[in-house]
Amino acid sequence: MTLHAVPSPAAIAPAVAVTGLHRAYGSRVVIENLNLRIERGEFVVLLGESGCGKTTLLRALAGLDAIDGGRITAPRRPAVVFQEHRLLPWDSLWRNVSLGLNATDARQRAATALTEVGLGGRLDDWPRNLSGGQAQRVALARALVQEPELLLLDEPFAALDALTRIRMHDLVRELVAVHRPGVLLVTHDVDEAIALADRILVMREGRIAFEHRMKRNGAAPIARTDLLAELGVGTSHPIPA
């Protein structure tokens, strides 16, 4: 171990680094001079009121939209889980999970991934036979089977009921601990953020306006009300203009 203590360049490189990002729709500026760095294995949760540009940022990181300025450095194609599962209805579950996987053992790897999300027995089932939570688990398996260094999640549990959502939290935590990608999760759910994040970001007016690093063991965790205040909810705390 000690002989190999010098970290390789790949190990230092972050999962994603963003500097001076700009994005506008016409004359409407949505992201302005935004900086962000996510390490490998780090779980970052992004909060922010509706329409503040969270999805815009995530899509830019995913390479789905053009950017109007700044730099995004992502080592490899990131995996994305959307709010809707986006499973191909004409493909069986394992075919869905292995979509884009160029490997001879695609089925085997899809099977492993489906087992990880608790659907190992349903390789040949159709997506339409799944519940919402199950479909979202398959979408998660499809993202993780790519072994991404960066995992982008845009409100992936928003459509699920509260109980299923809590189960999904446990599942995501376990899977991220095993695969260790850098994670950016967009959510509206403050409790979800507190439950999952290593670091919580609040976006406002096109940039990161607030950042809190969670100290999991010991140290005071952030109060829920403080976070809500940052989001401008249930407080007299004025939002800086």
Binding site: F82, L88, L99
Partner: peptide, 20 residues
């Protein structure tokens, strides 16, 4: 949305036509 997903999963044009 499925076309976009195909791109996210890294499908080339031919694969996109065939699979999606």
């Amino acid at each position: 949305k499925l076309l976009e997903l195909g791109r996210v999963q890294g499908l080339g044009t031919l694969e996109l036509i065939r699979r999606v």
